[in-house]
């Protein structure tokens, strides 16, 4: 299968929208065809080859791979409607990464911008499958309206993480911003840092007693991508709160018990 590498040309300072790129489409094209694809840079239509240096090679993998290299903080909508294969970002990525994705995986070595896996445009549904791993931190609205899949953030998350979450799993290794789980209906939010949840929106924490805890957190695959799952963190006792009760939601937030007031 094909592995495609895009390196952002140095000196690019504009906002780049690559929502038109689909990995499953890219693998069907020749390098020349790919470099002539049109993307949006600020308000202009520009050929991909003018913004990115392209490399393409055939590998032994059964699934296609797209690798983004360089400082991609201004590259937005990566993995829009991503469905098959893996996308790897070697540094930071911009906003709306993984919007409307329904399968495959995205791994970001650095930080992700705002609206990670959140809906975009007029769409109401967020991420609908697959897995996103962020080695750094994520901005506001991470996992908003998520319906299915997994997001694992090793660092911090901004405001409104898991807002209006419908299903799926989000793990955050660091601290979270305001309005955590706002409007959450179902799904699971795992917070490795002690977090005080608003009492009018979430139930009083109770100890989490389920074999699923080990099934979910104590497996080698997760430990390799999400540091809080590793034994050396000492996170053995978890509590769960259900909410957002203000809208009748029964989502669950796993967290270590915060210290008393």
């Amino acid at each position: 299968m094909k592995a495609i590498s895009l390196r952002l040309r140095t000196g690019t300072t504009e906002s780049i929208d690559i929502s038109s790129l689909r990995l499953e489409d890219l693998v069907e094209r020749t390098p020349d065809q790919i470099s002539h694809l049109v993307i949006r840079v600020d308000s202009l239509s520009v050929q991909l080859g003018e913004i990115f240096e392209l490399e393409s090679q055939t590998t032994g993998d059964s699934h296609p791979t797209l690798v983004l290299k360089g400082d991609c903080r201004r590259v937005h909508h990566l993995g829009h409607q991503h469905r098959v294969g893996r996308i790897m970002v070697e540094a930071d990525i911009g906003d709306h990464c993984g919007a409307c994705m329904s399968g495959g995986s995205i791994r970001i070595a650095g930080n992700a911008g705002r609206y990670l896996a959140a809906p975009t445009g007029s769409r109401k549904g967020g991420m609908d499958g697959g897995q996103i791993v962020v080695g750094g931190s994520a901005g506001d609205f991470a996992g908003s309206r998520m319906r299915r899949g997994e997001i694992w953030i090793a660092g911090d998350a901004g405001a409104k993480v898991a807002a209006w979450q419908v299903a799926g799993t989000i793990g955050v290794g660091g601290v979270v911003g305001n309005h955590v789980g706002y409007g959450m209906r179902r799904g699971t939010l795992i917070l490795a840092a002690a977090t005080r949840l608003p009492e009018f929106r979430f139930t009083t924490p109770i100890e989490l007693a389920t074999p699923f805890l080990a099934l979910r957190l104590h497996n080698s695959a997760l430990r390799s991508i999400w540091p809080p799952a590793r034994p050396e963190t000492g996170l053995t006792q978890w509590f769960t709160s259900r909410g957002d009760r203000s809208i009748g939601g029964i989502g669950e937030v796993w967290h270590p018990l915060p210290p008393p007031n």
Partner: peptide
């Protein structure tokens, strides 16, 4: 109605893992 469905995704992100992304569904 109180049951919870959870899917665990295996990915090809780690060394030696299957490259296919496929979820296993569990019920709690």
């Amino acid at each position: 109605g109180n049951q919870i469905s959870k899917q665990i995704w295996s990915t090809g992100l780690g060394e030696g893992e299957p490259t296919e992304t496929e979820a296993t569904r569990y019920w709690r």
